[in-house]
Design a protein around this nucleic acid. Structure first.
Lengths: 218, 218
DNA sequence: ATCTAACCTATACATAGGTGTGGTTCGCTG
DNA sequence: CAGCGAACCACACCTATGTATAGGTTAGAT
C-alpha cells in the first residue's frame, strides 16, 4: 500500500462525494450537506472522482446514473472491482425499474428519482453513512486480528488452525509429525501473539479472519 | 406449534407460489414452472394465499404488486411480520422506481416488469430458490443447536455461557458461588448434551444460537 | 564465519480439566 | 410418601495443558 501515509493524514469526518454532471445539482447538494455536519466534495464525472478523490475515507457516494462516459451502474461495478466499498446512493432523472433493481441488487443503499425532497437524500445519506461506519468497524476489527496473525510463523499458524479445530495437543503433534512439547511451545506462542488467554477467545478471533477483507487491487 | 405434523408431511420439493389477480398470467406461470422441475400453486389474492398455502414449505413467492385488497408491498411487510421468510419475486405491469426500491430494500429477490421473458422469471426464481435453500440450511443448523441447548438445565446453561466466554473453572465457580468440582460436573454435562468434544466446537455451536431464529407468531 | 529466526527436542513441575463414586438437599409430582 | 431430577459437595485419580530450563539443527542474512 504505497499511499498509506496519505490515508492516515485524512480528516476523520465523514464525507459525501457527489458525482453529477449537472452543475446546479452539484452546488445544491454540496450546500445542503455542508449545512449539515458533513464534508461534501463534488465531481462532474466518474473519471474526475477517480483521479481526485480519496475513496478510502469514511463516507458515501451520491451518484447520478446518467453520466458522461461510463454509466453510474457500470461505475458501481468498477468501484466494486477495485475494492472501493463506499456505500452508493443513486440519483436519476431518467431511470427505469430494471436499472434501479440492478443497482439495488449490486448493493446500492438507495435509488432516488429526481426531483427528490431534501429529506429524502438526507435520510439516504444517513443510512449510507451508518452502513459505512458498520463496515468500517467490522473491517478494522478483522484487520487488527489479521495483523496479529501476521506475526505468527508458519508453524504457529498451523498449530493455531489445529487448536481452533478442537484437536488435542497430542493429535496436533501426530498430524504435524512433531512432539507434544513442541506443540505446547507453539501453542503458547500463538496465545501470546494473538493476545488471548483462552481457546474460546482464540476461536472468536480467528472467526473474524475470513470476513472483513477485500483485496485492494490486483 | 400446533401444525407441526402437517409440516412434516409436506413433500420436500420446492414450490413456486404465484399470487396474481390476472388469470391468464397465473395459468401461464403455472404451466411454465410445472414444465420445469417445480411445483406451482397459484392464488388470486393475498388472502387466498394466506388461507390455503403452507408457507413453511421450501419455495418462493411470485407476487404481483397490484393486488385486490392489500398491495404486494404491504403484503411483503405482513409476511415478514408473521415470520414467513420465503423469498419474494415481484412482478408488475404498472410500477415505478420508488416501489421497486422499497421492495428490494425490504429484501425482495427481484422486481420484474411485465411483460418479461420466460428466462427472466426463471432466473429470478432460481435465485430465490437458492436463497431459500441457504436460509433453510442455516435455520436447520441453528435449530438443531437450539434443540441441544434446550436439553440443558439452567445451571448448565450458565456454565456453558461462562465457558464460551473463556473463563476457567475456578472463575466460573467463584462467579456462580459454587465449588470447582460442581463446575466440572456441569461442564461435563454440557459437553455431552451439546455433543461436542472440545471448547472450540462448543464456541462455534453457541455462536449459531443468536442467528437463524425468527419467532413464528406471537 | 557469525548471527539470527524458526524449528525442533527433552526433563520437570505446576495448574487446569475430566471422570467416577458416593452422598445431601430441595422441590415437584404421581 | 416415594420417586425423580436438579443442584450441590467431596475424595480420588487420571489426563491435558502451560511454563521454564536447557539444549539441538537448519537456512538465510550480515
Amino acid at each position: 500500500m504505497p499511499d498509506a501515509r496519505k490515508l492516515q493524514k485524512e480528516p476523520p469526518g465523514p464525507v459525501v462525494f457527489i458525482i453529477d454532471d449537472d452543475l446546479s445539482m452539484r452546488e445544491a447538494l454540496t450546500d445542503l450537506f455542508r449545512s449539515m455536519k458533513f464534508d461534501a466534495e463534488a465531481f462532474e464525472s466518474a473519471t474526475a472522482f477517480m483521479e481526485t478523490a480519496n475513496f478510502n475515507r469514511p463516507g458515501c457516494i451520491l451518484l447520478d446514473v446518467r453520466l458522461p462516459g461510463v454509466s453510474g451502474l457500470d461505475f458501481q461495478t468498477q468501484l466494486e472491482r477495485i475494492g472501493c466499498q463506499m456505500p452508493i446512493v443513486f440519483m436519476t432523472g431518467f431511470g427505469d425499474i430494471p436499472m434501479s433493481v440492478r443497482a439495488m441488487k449490486a448493493g446500492a443503499v438507495d435509488f432516488l428519482t429526481k426531483p427528490f425532497k431534501d429529506q429524502d437524500i438526507l435520510d439516504a445519506v444517513a443510512a449510507a453513512m451508518e452502513r459505512d461506519a458498520a463496515r468500517r468497524r467490522q473491517s478494522a476489527q478483522s484487520e487488527a486480528v489479521a495483523s496479529l496473525a501476521g506475526s505468527l510463523t508458519p508453524r504457529e499458524r498451523e498449530v493455531m488452525e489445529a487448536v481452533v479445530k478442537g484437536l488435542m495437543n497430542k493429535q496436533i503433534a501426530y498430524e504435524l509429525g512433531i512432539s507434544e512439547v513442541t506443540v505446547k511451545l507453539h501453542r503458547g506462542n500463538v496465545m501470546r501473539k494473538m493476545e488471548v488467554r483462552s481457546v474460546a477467545e482464540l476461536v472468536r478471533k480467528t472467526e473474524m479472519l475470513g470476513e472483513g477483507e477485500r483485496p485492494p487491487v490486483s
